[in-house]
Design a protein around this nucleic acid. Structure first.
Lengths: 228, 228
DNA sequence: TTATATTATGACTATTTTGTTACAGAAGCA
DNA sequence: TGCTTCTGTAACAAAATAGTCATAATATAA
């Protein structure tokens, strides 16, 4: 399980506990002690998920979530709320505001990790380490390895990410711009047409086993990964 | 859910809030600070929906709506009023004038989005991503795929949009000009007769499953999608 | 039924979109 | 550093699609 996680928590002890837990589970972490710091960090680099404490000095966690949700760049960032209150009303308010899940303090590291995993699986399946397989075409994110009917093939990092994204989001059209955002990442400025070239390279690699026609051109719209 | 939305609001803070909210929901936006600017923008490119503030400097929002409703090109544009007053009388006046719905300030982004969605679903269903199916003929905008009794068929982008429009607006006659406006887009300069050709191509594609006679010629008027 | 208006159809060309290749610079690696 | 691999871009080729026209077919009204 990869992914950079932003921890927004003002109590250092708790922040550190979470930090250690996540690092042990293979995540990168960034820590912020306040909403302002969080915003600054996010502005600098978009994390793959944010863990936000409900009670924060100054603007509350809810405020932060609202703010993130109203900005295009951060609108789809997976968010988990941390709350000391087991109160149903608060929980609902949090989910209503746009959090993907919440964790009630005190929580076990195990629970936290499980919830993060669940949210990532739902919101950003390409960030999980799950092996994806479709009809002999197999992608193993952990080993960074692709195999066609058992035979390992090599491809460049971009092609790998592209294929992985396709396989974790099959059966729907992705415009070139969407692909750039999702696969190349936030903040990158490359030509739309570059996607075509990587599609070409990916197809070329998949040709050997005939999987190349899983990657379909939808004229005027983009590309789709789907059974031929 | 796609669609371009025009925001007519003189207070920059509110305008920006709305702008962000809509963008995060996948809409394109155009902003106008006054009625005059709004008219200019609309003249340039017809939005799919207009959000109009009740209180505007100079001519009021109501004036703008009246004006839009009395112009053939803009008369069917979905309109949502923004009003600070929860006053029933004003609300009724707004609806009476021709707004499709109204939102009272202060409003939550969630509410705004929900109302926009509702209005679009009612007034411009082809802008939603809902799957449409009629008797084995199925159009899935997300997948960008058409199937006849389960079997995927191919068609060009124009035919796809045409079919999608027909299926989201069945049982009524559309003139060639209306089809050009709705399917090809506002401001395009093509012959009316071009529609015939695309109708022909679409019918040809649907022939295989006999769905072609869902597309009916109404002599002297236009075309209609309806059960044979 | 005939004349007329309207639509259907097929063919053709222009335009748009995508595929493919080559290449130069960047980045990683030993 | 020198080598290899990878990337993005540009240029050209190929393919798909769009729009128009000419002509045939069809419906409608007189």
């Amino acid at each position: 399980m990869a992914g950079t996680i932003l921890i927004v928590e003002d109590e250092p002890a708790i922040a550190e506990l979470i930090d250690l837990t996540l690092k042990r589970n293979g995540h990168q972490t960034i820590c912020a002690g306040s909403v302002e710091e969080a915003i600054r960090l996010i502005d600098h680099a978009l994390p793959d998920l944010a863990l936000i404490d409900w009670m924060l000095p100054g603007a509350s966690g809810i405020e932060l979530i609202k703010r993130l949700r109203s900005n295009k760049r951060t609108q789809s960032m997976p968010i988990i709320m941390l709350t000391a209150k087991a109160d149903e009303a608060d929980k609902l308010a949090g989910l209503d505001t746009g959090a993907d899940d919440y964790v009630t303090k005190p929580f076990s590291p195990k629970e936290l990790v499980a919830r993060i995993k669940a949210v990532l699986r739902r919101r950003a399946p390409q960030l999980t380490d799950d092996i994806v397989e479709t009809n002999g075409l197999r992608v193993d994110p952990t080993q960074h390895r692709v195999s066609l009917n058992g035979e390992t093939v090599h491809m460049g990092p971009s092609e790998f990410r592209l294929l992985h994204f396709f396989m974790t989001h099959p059966e729907r059209v992705h415009t070139r711009t969407q692909l750039l955002d999702q696969v190349w990442g936030d903040h990158v400025f490359v030509e739309d047409r570059t996607v075509d070239v990587h599609i070409r390279r990916l197809r070329q690699t998949l040709e050997r086993s005939g999987h190349d026609d899983y990657i379909q051109t939808i004229r005027g719209a983009g590309y789709r990964f789907s059974k031929p």
